[in-house]
């Protein structure tokens, strides 16, 4: 009762305003991607010509492919590294180097990109001088850079899940003679799978989105999508970029809708299971 009465208060109004602030610019992008005029801000009738031009732009298409490959491999590696880091920090108690590890896991979350990018480039240059690798900077160096900062995000997501999970199941398995590695793969991993999926998706979008770090550590060979978009956007607004933005927004919205659907379904299932359990208890 109190809840319905409180519906129209200050914070609710701010929430609506905040969501409008977040979404109106994206709606504008989408609407103007269907504009017939080359001038993005003057409406000259409905047209889908910019989508056609987008799909004929070889530079953008090959950049999309490069970005997708880097993001896939960076996210996969980041999930492995991040999960191990999260597990070590939440389950291993105290060990030497723990403070160092937890600092290095949280610092990339806030580190300004220009600093990360510059420092990694200097590392790759130095490595090339000493070991001869990497002779050419490109996809491999971007992959390493993205893996490093993405694994920090994965570690935070997975650690949050590990803290929620009941530790006693793992301990019970170990007491019954299951070795640590087997316990991890047969007990812990299945429980934290949703967090791994969430972490992978987060790392994937972060890698796809990165402009600054990739610009520093990339060589002449590899152009990622943000690098191509940036050099085009610098020249001013272009309806082709609006079309690209619309496709990105559409993809992310559909994926989010799908995630929402599954999360709600599993929540309802869990609620039903809990109710049933309560009934049987009686």
């Amino acid at each position: 009762m109190m809840r319905t009465l409180r519906r129209f208060n200050f914070s609710t109004v701010m929430l609506v305003l905040g969501l409008l602030f977040l979404y109106l610019p994206m709606v504008v992008l989408v609407v103007y991607s269907f504009n017939a005029s080359k001038l993005v801000t003057v409406w000259a009738g409905f047209s889908t010509q910019w989508y056609g031009e987008l799909f004929r732009d070889q530079q953008i298409l090959s950049a999309v492919w490069t970005s997708l490959r880097i993001a896939f491999f960076a996210a996969s590696m980041a999930v492995c590294l991040g999960t191990v880091a999260a597990f070590v920090m939440t389950r291993f108690g105290h060990f030497r180097g723990k403070t160092a590890l937890s600092s290095m896991v949280t610092a990339p979350l806030v580190m300004p990109e220009v600093i990360t990018g510059l420092s990694l480039l200097l590392l790759f240059v130095q490595m090339a001088q000493i070991t001869g690798w990497p002779a050419d900077r490109g996809m491999a160096t971007i992959w390493i850079a993205h893996t490093t900062f993405c694994s920090a995000y994965v570690a935070v997501v997975v650690a949050a899940r590990l803290r929620e999970v009941d530790h006693s199941i793992e301990e019970a398995a170990m007491d019954l003679g299951s070795p640590p590695l087997k316990t991890f793969f047969s007990i812990t991993l299945p429980i934290i799978t949703p967090a791994l999926v969430a972490g992978w998706l987060l790392a994937f979008t972060l890698s796809l989105d990165d402009l600054v770090i990739a610009s520093f550590v990339s060589g002449p060979g590899a152009n990622t999508l943000p690098m191509v978009v940036f050099s085009s956007v610098r020249m001013g607004v272009s309806p082709k970029i609006n079309a690209l933005a619309t496709l990105i927004i559409l993809t992310v919205s559909l994926a989010t809708l799908l995630a929402w659907f599954f999360m709600r379904r599993s929540e309802t299932k869990r609620g039903a299971a809990l109710q049933e359990a309560a009934l049987h208890d009686d």
Binding site: P25, D209, L211, V229, V233, L244, A245, I248, I249, A255
Partner: peptide
């Protein structure tokens, strides 16, 4: 989750 660059561009 969409794109930082494109949201600034908007």
């Amino acid at each position: 989750w969409t794109s930082f660059l494109i949201r600034v561009y908007a």
